[in-house]
């Protein structure tokens, strides 16, 4: 039981994520989480104005159910299967974050400096969440997929476009962390 409560090592987690992909393919679907963002647009009636959202969201209902399950899974894992919940980060990472004003890095899943309500009620805090989210939504649809569709499914299927997309993910991530973080924090 202790092994379940403790953080799972990468060599257990990785194959289990591949299993999620395989199950969805076996069910006749695909592993693509960012598609749900498009479905939410269609659900909200964006199809009346924009061709890209003119499709029956009901055909994507299965994926929305996966989302619902993911929320429940997050609840179960965090409140029932995690003890401790702290994250064992590289001390170098923790030190660097301290310089940016992040205290107790790794004590929780998310940094309170960005995700606490206090942070959200500051202009900088809310802008970080809105800009971050916007870029994720815009970028994943532009690239036609995210970590699940490109990095896991696409690479597993040896697709060149997915490899290019993953290179793109890293260009963006590295620019943000190494060039922009020192300006933002």
């Amino acid at each position: 039981m202790n092994h379940i409560l403790e953080p799972w090592p990468w060599y257990v987690s990785g194959p289990l994520i591949a299993l999620v992909m395989f199950l969805l393919i076996y069910f006749g679907k695909t592993f693509g989480m960012s598609s749900n963002l498009r479905t939410f647009c269609a659900l909200a009636g964006a199809g009346k104005k924009v061709e890209f959202f003119k499709f029956s969201w009901r055909d994507q209902k299965w994926n929305l159910i996966v989302v619902l399950g993911a929320v429940i899974g997050g609840f179960i894992a965090h409140y029932m299967l995690s003890n401790p919940t702290a994250i064992d980060l590289n001390p170098k990472t923790v030190d660097q974050l301290k310089e940016f004003g992040f205290n107790n890095a790794g004590a929780s899943l998310l940094p309170p400096e960005i995700y606490s309500w206090d942070a959200v009620f500051s202009l900088k805090g809310i802008l970080i969440l809105i800009i971050g989210g916007f870029l994720v939504g815009f970028g994943t649809r532009y690239a036609g997929g995210c970590t699940s569709g490109h990095a896991i499914t696409g690479l597993s299927n040896l697709q060149l476009p997915s490899l290019i997309a993953v290179v793109g993910f890293f260009i963006g991530g590295l620019v943000m962390v190494h060039l922009l973080f020192p300006l933002i924090f």
Binding site: L135, S162, A165, M176
Partner: peptide
């Protein structure tokens, strides 16, 4: 689309720390 779209997503991923699966979780 893959390189530019991917890079835009990467910027947002590193900033928010959340890709489209984890954000629901």
């Amino acid at each position: 689309r893959y390189l530019v779209g991917g890079a835009i997503f990467g910027l947002g991923w590193a900033l928010s720390g959340a890709c489209p699966g984890p954000m629901y979780i």
